[in-house]
Amino acid sequence: MALYSEKVMDHFRNPRNVGVIEDADGVGEVGNAKCGDIMKIYLKIKDDVIDDVKFETFGCGSAIASSSMATELIKGKPVSEAMKLTNQAVTEALDGLPAHKLHCSVLAEEAIRAAMKDYYDRHGIAYDESQFPAAHDCDHCGV
């Protein structure tokens, strides 16, 4: 059996929404180079809808695939729906990830939330702090 599902390999080989949005409304970056993965999400929001989303990722195959899938899952969706994206949804959409790679989907969820928070902050939109729990510590190295 291959390490990754066909879905993961497809998103890894042909990642969707790679790139940068120069005039983004919100940008979120999570992860640590020391641990071997960093994800950066750029959001363009229009009328409370994710009008455009791009990502940059430094990391393994599942990190790139998780970023790609996460952007695809929120693109064109209302902000309220994007806020509900979970790492489980990313993992399921990828037809699963190996157990030791699940943190990649967690990073994808956290990157999107970080970008949403940045959007709220920049636009002076009030929000409930509890919606943005502190990003979990790296379970690899405690960074």
């Binding site: 641990c35 071997g36 393994c60 030791h100």
Partner: peptide
Amino acid sequence: GIEGESLLLLLDDKGICASSGSACTSGSLD
């Protein structure tokens, strides 16, 4: 600026079998 596992997977797509010392390929934490 890059991570070794994704490098290996893409090289494998090009028919090249190589190895890396990245954490993701070692199966360990570091």
